[in-house]
Simulated assay, not measured.
Amino acid sequence: MALVDQEHMKEAGYRLSEATPGDFIALLKPRVMSLVVFTAFVGMAMAPATPNPLLALIAIAAIAVGAGASGALNMWYDADIDAVMSRTKGRPVPSGRVTPGEALAFGLVLSALSVGVLGLMANWVAGALLAFTIFFYAVIYTMWLKRSTPQNIVIGGAAGALPPVVGWAAVTGTVSVESLILFLIIFLWTPPHFWALALFKSADYERAGIPMLPNVAGHAATKKQIFIYALLLAASGLLPVWAGFASLAYGAVAAALGVGFVWYSWRVLQMPESDQAMKPAKALFGYSLLYLFVLFTALLADRLAASLGFGFGS
């Protein structure tokens, strides 16, 4: 009977889904989600109040689902350009394993679920911030900025920088200077991180017609912008000490990481145009991932040490 129904559906023009659970997990962009969850958790941990552990777990889960919803909506809308880029052509939608309608419905349902759960279980300031984050990434960045301006990553980076603000708000119900400093660090980290990738993937972006900075302004201008942002990022990493919510021990770690980021960016700046291997750009891209993880881990360790009575933190 089931086989007969399937044949009738095919004859009527319906396409049976070939998606597996793994395909829907891929729609969530798990690697991006893991970074979102980690920075949101640090935002919660740095907050002055101590949340109920169960509510904190629910809040983190809601933020993770919201991040995954953003990824699914991004893959739904970007299926056309993903199909022509070597880095993304194997994604579930351009490969045909998930239909665009399935990806859209999946993303919308998860968006509503994540915002509703966070608002009801934590507070509606956090819920509203999560809703804005999803909207900014899916609509402002994906549908508008990504295809229209070489500053797409700069402005669109706000979406990726908001998770620690959402985490902080989930605990306190407010947005503070401290949470905005965490936002600023990720906001300034995003352009050099993605422009390093764009330097050695410029042919991909060229095929897709995405106006990434190297394709519009050239490699020389991109390398200068990377170096400028590296300097700003290195300085921003020290702001938690200046604002009084991190110790001098954290400051030493942040300073060392910042010097490393500037050094890798300097190597990119000095990279000759004839360097087809793009080794300095690839090295910076790899270091940038390590930088953000270690910096936020240092913040977390610093807060734990302060809570136990060690260190110079507040």
Score class of each variant (00 low, 15 high):
residue 165 V to H: 06
residue 259 V to R: 06
residue 313 G to W: 00
residue 164 P to F: 02
residue 152 N to R: 13
residue 314 S to W: 07
residue 130 L to Y: 07
residue 234 A to G: 10
residue 74 N to S: 13
residue 192 P to D: 04
residue 275 D to E: 14
residue 268 V to K: 03
residue 108 L to P: 04
residue 82 D to A: 07
residue 23 D to H: 13
residue 147 R to G: 12
residue 102 E to M: 11
residue 302 D to E: 13
residue 198 A to P: 04
residue 183 F to N: 00
residue 150 P to S: 11
residue 280 P to F: 03
residue 244 G to F: 12
residue 69 A to K: 01
residue 235 A to T: 10
residue 17 S to H: 11
residue 280 P to C: 08
residue 290 L to C: 10
residue 44 M to K: 05
residue 200 F to T: 07
residue 151 Q to L: 15
residue 181 I to T: 09
residue 173 G to T: 07
residue 210 I to D: 02
residue 97 R to A: 12
residue 138 A to K: 04
residue 249 A to L: 12
residue 119 G to W: 07
residue 66 G to I: 06
residue 176 S to R: 10
residue 94 P to C: 11
residue 282 K to Q: 14
residue 180 L to W: 08
residue 63 I to G: 02
residue 143 M to E: 10
residue 42 V to W: 04
residue 264 Y to L: 07
residue 50 T to L: 11
residue 108 L to T: 09
residue 170 A to G: 00
residue 294 V to N: 00
residue 207 R to W: 09
residue 205 Y to A: 08
residue 267 R to T: 05
residue 69 A to S: 15
residue 43 G to F: 01
residue 92 P to K: 11
residue 125 V to G: 05
residue 15 R to F: 03
residue 311 G to I: 01
residue 179 S to E: 03
residue 150 P to C: 11
residue 262 V to H: 12
residue 35 L to K: 00
residue 92 P to M: 13
residue 269 L to V: 05
residue 110 L to D: 08
residue 148 S to R: 15
residue 123 N to Y: 07
residue 148 S to H: 15
residue 11 E to R: 15
residue 59 A to Q: 03
residue 25 I to L: 15
residue 241 V to D: 01
residue 291 Y to A: 06
residue 299 L to I: 12
residue 124 W to L: 08
residue 170 A to M: 02
residue 65 V to C: 02
residue 149 T to A: 14
residue 103 A to R: 10
residue 58 I to W: 10
residue 253 V to P: 02
residue 276 Q to R: 15
residue 68 G to F: 02
residue 47 A to C: 08
residue 178 E to R: 09
residue 153 I to M: 11
residue 239 L to H: 08
residue 5 D to K: 04
residue 131 A to C: 07
residue 249 A to G: 13
residue 31 R to K: 15
residue 202 S to C: 09
residue 124 W to P: 06
residue 241 V to A: 14
residue 178 E to F: 04
residue 212 M to P: 00
residue 226 I to H: 02
residue 49 A to S: 08
residue 1 M to W: 10
residue 221 A to M: 10
residue 119 G to K: 05
residue 175 V to Y: 06
residue 47 A to T: 11
residue 117 V to H: 02
